[in-house]
Design a protein around this nucleic acid. Sequence first.
DNA 1: GGGTCTCGACGCGAGATTTT
DNA 2: AAAATCTCGCGTCGAGACCC
Length: 457
Amino acid sequence: MSNTQYAVCHLQRGSGNDSGMSCHIERKDTKGKIYVPVNANADRTHLNRELVRFPEGVSNRTEAIQHRIDTAGLRRKVGKNQTKAIRIILTGTHEQMMKIANDDRLDSWIDANLKWLKGTFGEENLVSCVLHMDEKTPHLHATIVPIVTGERIRRKREGERKYETKSGPRLSADDVMRRTKLHEYQNSYAAAMKPFGLQRGIVGSTAKHQANSEYYRQQVIQYEEDIAKLQVDVEKAQEGRSTILAWFGKGDLAKAKKELADKDGQIAELNRQIKALQAEKIRLREQHKSEIRKLRNGYQVEIDKAIRRAETAERQSEEKDAVIDRQRKLIDRLDRMANPQRYSLSSGAELVRINVSNYRNPSLHIWTRVGEELFEDTKFQIDYDMAQRHFNGQITDEEFVNAVFEPQEQVSGKQAELLGAAFTLAAGGPAEVHVGTGSGGSSSNLPWREQKKGNRR
DNA sequence: GGGTCTCGACGCGAGATTTT
DNA sequence: AAAATCTCGCGTCGAGACCC
């Protein structure tokens, strides 16, 4: 879980003279009557503060915008469709903003914000700045009149001028809100907010001003990052597995088996952590479902994206599990081919299945078959260490049974007879009870193994 | 006064980049 | 590899400015 606290700086073009927003910011309707929106707490409205002094003869934000336009010395009449003001909302993650307020640092936070606004957009262009304390998170509403002095960005591509135009300040929201400039604002604002424990948000974020959703969004992104990190760990563990497989190739089987078991443990633990994160993410999503439903903006897209990515990560994790499973089967198959003696009973019978009731106080129950003849037997109080070796995968079922049961104990009388007859037919001599070298019989073993599938660990 | 130019806003689309 | 998304430059539009 993340403790990252983000600085929030959101710019938006105002439409017309932006008087609608003036009402919201100043908590007054168009006739100057006090009005508090539903999401604000009227008991706290008195804590709101106007931070920029209006010029002489100017009494509100709308007039302040017009005053700046009138006195800027613009060389061109302002068009009907031009943006006259840019609204800027400045805040941070709810938790950190509350901490700043509770630590009595709100005034210095405000000073730093005013300094940044004036330095970035020009003191004259900052016509209004209001602190809101009556909504969930303390925040500032700043108003900028986008008056710039530089040359138009597209001037160059338009080529030679045919008319002489006056030079001087221009009103251009396009210029102020150019992509490169927005980038610069985010960077410099984050730098200015660093002393307050706030950092830059995700580049490219479309996040809007809504503390709860901001928190939720960050959580989802954090889960996604954590899951991605775990995925990398799983991959590393996988690489380790390859090394182990190489040991196996060199014949160091016991070492390979042991290491393999460790790696499987690691991978299982990582997968468990991934699953836990997925579950936490889903829980969070449920918790915020009703809130999310209300959001029909860029947030929704971003959250969905994060969730999609997380789900993909989960899918990939499952695919990796399948790879591990396939590798395990491959090891098993190779081991059977390289060491057939590890997979046959000393009696020559087929081991149908075994059952160990309890590895702490172990007993071994076996089922064997020769042709159609079935047999079962149980031994109690068997050797603890041997049972543990079986439990750890160091010995096969057959090796375990051979260690516990003598050859004659593995079969019934009838089975023994059949075994004798079968060996006589196949090899022209009496039955060889124990096959210790692994030099033969491997191909005839295969159909048995097929039959045993599903009955064994 | 009318034709043409300039300006800012907006949207399109080709190419680049990222995701599936 | 294909689809989706992002970037960035450019064209167009409406409105104001300039010039004859």
